[in-house]
Design a protein around this nucleic acid. Structure first.
Length: 694
DNA sequence: GCAAGGTC
């Protein structure tokens, strides 16, 4: 018997704990222990029709076509969970998690208590997956919880001394809120059924039109942006500005629409007239101020994905390659939420920063900033921002075995990390104005010392390829007519969607990239991706048009969900209120989606005419009363033979008949048989059944 | 056939 069975979320966490506590089994703080681990969620909700008991309910919750069955009544559901299938990328096989549960159960049989040491995610997901396992093994003895700031030995040992008892899961806010979240998302599946039905009703032969609070928002946002681009009309304007001999532009700062209207003219002539009112003016009030800028935030996976998209790597490949590099401990944990690191994580990496620099060809003399800036420092960061691992590769070429993007991943990730060891970028801010017209101003930056920017330049993409202007301003500037235009809307891209999702706090670091990978791959892809730029496919356009003006397509829905989840987490609100709100969304969106299907023809073109192949042609039927009294319907023709009135009468009497049939190869043969109730693909039907072999 | 959230 051991005192504590320590349950870690995943293999890497278990490994770090073994390192911190002195082995997979052992004794620490006067207690014997053993470490086991899951791999994320081992349990998931059963299908809707498997969570209800009566035959009528089972029928209701399996329907994809009867809109009267929705919204679902969540009170009908048992919310029972079952094992999931875990996909192994190496064996390319899916395996049930049943074996993992059995193994943990066997270990628990020898333990006095379980210590839940899963991740401490802000969403409570670690608590949810921990309880799923504890419930699945039917554990009724004490449960303790630790929450660690990161997985370094120091933090893990510190957490161990702050162990708390959490024996009642229904009083634990973290569990309650993530449980409510998972039920909310589960109920949102109805919107996929509704959308699929709506598209088919409108005549589109679609597979599945997926909807959810990530998918719908992404697809709708891309569609709306595409509409803006399609409807964009370039409207030129003409405005008076000044230019000095070096080419610096002096202009008025136009903030409000009124200011813009007063200074900009739609026709060239008015622009010329306005410009002609000005004369050459001396430049005055030239100021040079030395300024500094600290390195930017560290990367998360979505940001890394979008940086690499510009180099032609797709999210799916980047995810897979990163995962392999993580398993080899060359890079840190991929699915992190963190954009910061703890002091411990910083200290851990410090001894190897010079060798990392050598591998990616960064000048080690630039790495002089050996304290962690507060802007990059978090008091708790379970995994910390995406960064290089403690294991440093010998060279970049050695990384090629992990995948096409491996070298690019390491170079980008390492350079971004090393930048925080560089000194602040130094530049001069130069400003000046015109003596005669002081509202006309200019301003630009002159680099003094690149410092961290020589390691990783976060603003790289913004820099134009034009030659920088001379830093000499003035001594005078002449008026000229500037021709501008209203800006063209940005093309949807991985980067752009990433920023949008982050702004609205939709999805987590892990799901933001994985849902984009999902939407851009497979036969039923909703998004075409090319070098990071997005366009919608036909099913993608259908999905978007269907959720116009709906709640599921609005980023506000996630905001509301999260606000309510926080209240549940604080035990200030009943979880049922959160779950109920999903039903309200379905009730609100159902008629809108059905109505939106009428707009499909306008935006995605008319559906292709239905194929009239033999396979889909309805066969003529015969109806009558069978000898047992029930009314039956069966095909009027069987294997090229049309039953005569006499044969039909006999068949309904239950008699055996014999006739000449024609095979599909044109050969005639004698068939003997009777009318029978049969099953085809799980569906029952009545029809002639030949007694072959006679 | 359905979600989003973990995981490999």
């Amino acid at each position: 018997m051991i005192d504590l069975l320590i349950l870690a979320e995943k293999a890497s966490a278990a490994k770090h704990m073994a390192k911190a506590f002195g082995g997979t089994t052992g004794r620490m703080a006067g207690k014997t222990y053993k470490i086991v681990h899951a791999h994320g969620h081992l349990m998931a909700f059963k299908d809707p029709d498997k969570m209800v008991t009566t035959a009528a309910a089972k029928q209701r919750y399996s329907s994809w076509t009867d809109m009267q069955t929705m919204p679902w009544d969540q009170a009908d559901f048992s919310w029972a969970k079952t094992y999931t299938k875990a996909y192994n990328a190496y064996t390319k096989k899916s395996k049930s998690t049943r074996a993992d549960i059995t193994a943990i159960k066997a270990e628990a049989a020898n333990a006095q208590a379980i210590l839940m040491a899963t991740d401490n995610d802000p969403s409570g997901e670690g608590d949810l997956l921990g309880w799923e396992i504890i419930n699945a093994i039917k554990w009724h003895k004490p449960v303790y919880r630790i929450r660690f700031a990161d997985e370094t030995p120091k933090s893990l040992n510190k957490a161990l001394h702050q162990m708390v008892a959490i024996t009642d899961q229904f009083k634990q806010g973290e569990y309650l809120k993530s449980d409510a979240r998972s039920k909310w998302d589960f109920l949102s599946m109805q919107l996929t059924r509704i959308s699929t039905y709506a598209a088919r009703q409108a005549g589109y032969r679609v597979k599945v039109i997926n909807q959810g609070r990530l998918k719908s928002v992404i697809v709708l946002k891309i569609w709306q942006q595409q509409q803006l681009i399609d409807n964009y009309v370039k409207t030129p304007y003409f405005e008076a500005k000044f230019k000095d001999p070096a080419g610096h532009i002096f202009a008025r700062e136009l903030k409000t629409d009124a200011q813009k209207q007063a200074a900009r003219f739609a026709d060239e002539k008015s622009g010329q007239t306005a410009t002609a009112r000005y004369t050459k003016s001396p430049v005055t009030n030239i100021k040079r101020v030395r300024k500094t800028q600290a390195p930017g935030a560290l990367l998360d996976l979505a940001k890394l994905g979008s940086l690499l998209a510009r180099q032609g790597f797709n999210p799916k490949e980047v995810l897979a390659t990163y995962q392999k590099m993580y398993e080899a401990e060359i890079v840190s944990y991929p699915r992190t939420e963190d954009r910061k690191i703890t002091q411990e994580q910083y200290n851990e990496l410090l001894p190897v920063v010079d060798s990392i620099a050598a591998v990616i060809g960064v000048d080690q003399r630039l790495l002089t900033h050996r304290t962690l800036r507060s802007k990059h420092c978090a008091s708790a960061a379970a995994h910390g921002a995406n960064r290089p691992g403690i294991k440093v590769p010998q060279s970049l070429t050695e990384l090629a075995k992990y995948g096409p993007s491996a070298q690019a991943i390491y170079k980008t990730l390492a350079a971004n990390y090393l930048a925080i060891l560089g000194e602040d970028y130094e530049f001069d801010r130069v400003t000046a104005q015109l003596q005669l017209y002081p509202t006309f101003k200019t301003g630009f930056n002159v680099p003094v010392k690149l410092n961290y920017k020589a390691i990783f330049d976060d603003a790289e993409q913004v820099l134009a390829k034009t030659k920088p202007l001379s830093t000499v301003v003035g001594p005078e500037a002449v008026p000229f007519m500037y021709q501008g235009a209203n800006p063209k809307p940005t093309r949807p891209s991985a980067d752009w969607i990433g920023k949008f999702l982050e702004k609205h706090n939709i999805g987590t670091g892990a799901t933001r990239l994985s849902v984009q990978a999902q939407l851009t791959s497979g036969k039923n892809a909703f998004i075409n991706e090319k070098r990071g730029f997005y366009t919608l496919t036909q099913p993608g356009t259908i999905a978007a048009v269907l959720v116009r003006d709906t709640w599921i397509g609005s980023p506000q829905i996630t905001k509301q969900l999260f606000d309510h989840m926080d209240a549940v987490g604080q035990l200030n609100e009943s979880p049922a209120v959160v779950v109920n709100s999903a039903t309200k969304v379905v009730a609100h969106d159902l008629p809108l989606i059905l109505n939106n299907s009428q707009a499909l023809a306008q935006f995605v073109g008319k559906p292709a005419p239905t194929r009239t192949t033999k396979k889909y042609k309805a066969k003529p039927k015969v109806k009558g009363q069978y000898c047992d009294g029930q009314t039956v319907e069966f095909n009027a023709t069987w294997s090229g033979h049309k039953f005569s009135a006499e044969e039909r009468r006999k068949l309904l009497q239950g008699a055996t008949i014999t006739f000449e049939a024609t095979s599909k190869y044109g050969k005639t043969y004698t068939a003997t048989g009777a009318l029978k109730q049969q099953t085809y693909k799980g569906k029952q039907f009545w029809g002639f059944k030949a007694a072959f072999g006679k």
